Computed example of a mutant assay.
Amino acid sequence: MFDLDEFLQCIREKLYSYVESRKNDVDRGAETAELAALLVQKYGYGLADSASLAANLLECPQPDLIRDVDQLVASIDPDWRANQQRRFSARPASLFLSST
């Protein structure tokens, strides 16, 4: 039998593991906080969509993982909302790669 709560717990564990990986990359200088936060946001929103689809199929209440994702993104890049606006304004958004 499918247990939605167990499924959501697994999704949260995957999300938190991914966040720790991104934070480690920021700490060791492999990624900027802005890039790591964007990757977490995209990954987390994808997981949230998956959880929503599962809840729909099982006719269960919708989980609210977006709030969790946004908090985790902010823990990596406190300026993520401003950075997101900069990306939206930079049509098309792109990466600028540099070695410092």
Rank of each mutant, 00 (worst) to 15 (best):
M1L: 11
R67H: 04
L47C: 14
I76K: 01
R28F: 07
F88G: 03
I66W: 05
D27H: 03
P61S: 06
L58W: 13
R91S: 15
A90D: 15
F96C: 12
D27S: 14
E20R: 09
Q85F: 08
Q85E: 09
P92W: 07
E34I: 05
A48I: 08
V26K: 05
Y18Q: 13
S94P: 02
L53M: 06
D27R: 09
G29K: 06
R22T: 02
P92Q: 10
R28C: 14
R91P: 01
D70K: 11
E31N: 15
K14Q: 14
S50F: 02
R87F: 13
V69Q: 02
A54P: 00
D70S: 12
Q71K: 06
L97Q: 10
A48L: 08
R81W: 07
N83H: 15
F7C: 02
L95I: 15
Y43S: 05
L95N: 08
S21P: 00
L47M: 13
A36P: 06
R81T: 09
V26S: 02
S75K: 03
F96V: 15
L4S: 02
K42H: 06
I11K: 05
D49G: 13
A90S: 15
K14L: 11
S17K: 14
R91C: 15
I66S: 05
S94H: 13
N83F: 07
A37S: 12
P78S: 11
W80M: 06
R86D: 13
L65F: 05
D25L: 10
L97S: 15
V73P: 00
Q71L: 00
K14T: 13
E13G: 03
A37R: 01
G46A: 05
L4C: 03
M1W: 08
P78V: 14
G29E: 07
V26T: 13
E59N: 11
R22W: 00
L53I: 07
K23Y: 01
L39G: 03
G46T: 06
A74S: 13
M1N: 09
S89E: 12
Q62D: 08
N24W: 07
A54E: 02
A74C: 06
A37V: 01
Q84N: 15
Q41R: 11
A33H: 01
L58K: 08
A33F: 02
L38H: 02
S99R: 12
A30T: 08
P63Y: 03
G44E: 01
Y16V: 09
W80P: 00
A54G: 02
A36I: 04
Q85W: 10
S75Q: 06
V69L: 04
T32K: 07
L72P: 00
D64C: 04
E6L: 03
A82E: 14
T32Y: 09
L97P: 02
F7P: 00
L38W: 00
I11M: 10
V19M: 05
A54I: 03
Q85D: 07
